[in-house]
């Protein structure tokens, strides 16, 4: 029996990739789509050969085992609560939430409803990242001392640059992926955070440039550049990189450096033709494992999503204060 999946909102462009992954996975059946934007629901349903539901309730009343939430960031919490109360397992797009209260209520509601809550952190399924983690765990570079990370992108525009819908700008959008990788690698929480931001790329009422400095429980320090600083002419969407520094050596990862350069006269531009593995396929496969067996050890949980978003929210607090801020872990 295929696992029945519904998608709640295609506001986030990652929904297309997840829909594609489920369509191509014989273990899954994409049962339907619901969206605030009914027209988008119909268009996407047609594109992916599935049904458009007229409301989220209608989708949740259909025979669906689990949902993927790809709405605007501020709607993650209400949609997750609605899905949990309907007894559906949830894979939620990042950042999990835009306020701590939302994150806590998502986790509590899912626990009470006895449904599983996961966060869409596909970078954990990158073969380069998995090998990096294995090298570190094998002690190849000794004890870890420092990490330098980047997750730059181009400006996604749309609701992403409306803080009323996104909860911020580049910093809330791009901090959580690499923060999650650092937490996953170090098995430690961030205790202190400092951030500098500006809006000098696009001059809007949101941050487009963000540099974070984090200190972890055991003293490892890290910086993370989560800016939307890729220009329009950049050959790809952005990057995920990690430099990991240990007592015995260094590992450098450029997660998506598996491409050939395409000088495309027809399009009048230079692009990167990626040939690496699709990390969303690993993410969606793990979600199906979790639904089927109750276990997917590498899938980021709701708690993981909460802890990563907590760092992004603390980073905004640091910007407001102009000083490092601490995060306590109960």
């Amino acid at each position: 029996m295929a696992i029945k999946i519904g998608i709640m909102s295609f506001a986030h462009l990652h929904a297309d990739s997840y829909a594609h992954c489920f369509k191509n996975n014989p273990r899954a059946e994409l049962v339907g789509i619901a969206d605030h934007d009914a027209q988008r629901a119909r268009a996407k349903a047609q594109q992916f050969g599935t049904q458009a539901f007229e409301s989220y309730d209608a989708l949740l009343n259909a025979p669906v085992d689990a949902v993927v939430i790809c709405s605007e960031n501020i709607r993650h919490a209400p949609l997750a609560l609605q899905a949990a109360m309907a007894g559906k397992h949830i894979l939620c797009e990042k950042p999990l939430m835009t306020t701590l209260e939302d994150g806590l209520s998502m986790m509590q509601t899912c626990q009470k409803a006895n449904v599983q809550l996961f966060t869409a952190f596909p970078c954990r399924f990158s073969p380069a990242m998995r090998n990096l983690k294995a090298m570190v765990e094998a002690g190849e570079i000794g004890d870890l001392l420092a990490i330098r990370g980047t997750n730059r992108g181009s400006n996604p525009h749309g609701w992403f640059i409306d803080p009323e819908l996104s909860g911020g700008g580049a910093m809330i959008d791009h901090t959580v992926h690499v923060t999650d990788l650092m937490r996953w690698l170090l098995k430690q929480e961030v205790t202190e955070i400092y951030a500098e931001t500006n809006n000098r790329m696009f001059h809007g009422n949101y941050d487009d440039t963000a540099m974070l400095t984090m200190t972890f429980q055991d003293g490892v320090f890290a910086t993370l550049d989560s800016s939307w600083s890729r220009p329009k002419t950049f050959p790809t969407w952005g990057d995920v990189t990690l430099g990991v520094f240990g007592t015995k050596g260094v590992i450098e990862m450029d997660m998506f450096a598996q491409y050939m350069v395409h000088y495309n006269d027809k399009a009048g531009r230079i692009s990167q033709a990626f040939w690496g593995d699709n990390i969303d396929a690993g993410l969606t496969e793990a979600f199906l494992d979790a639904i089927e067996t109750g276990s997917a050890p590498d899938l980021a949980t709701g708690y993981d999503g909460y802890k990563a978003a907590e760092v992004a929210l603390a980073a905004y607090e640091s910007v407001r204060q102009g000083a490092p801020v601490t995060i306590s872990h109960g």
């Binding site: 400092y194 500098e196 500006n198 000098r200 963000a210 540099m211 910086t223 550049d225 520094f245 260094v250």
Partner: peptide, 22 residues
């Protein structure tokens, strides 16, 4: 790892290493 803010508002990240055998 150094993060600086210029008077212009530009945010600047400077990395210096004496630990890279590469």
């Amino acid at each position: 790892l150094v993060t600086m803010r210029a008077t212009s508002g530009a945010v600047i990240h400077v990395e210096g290493t004496w630990c890279d055998p590469g």
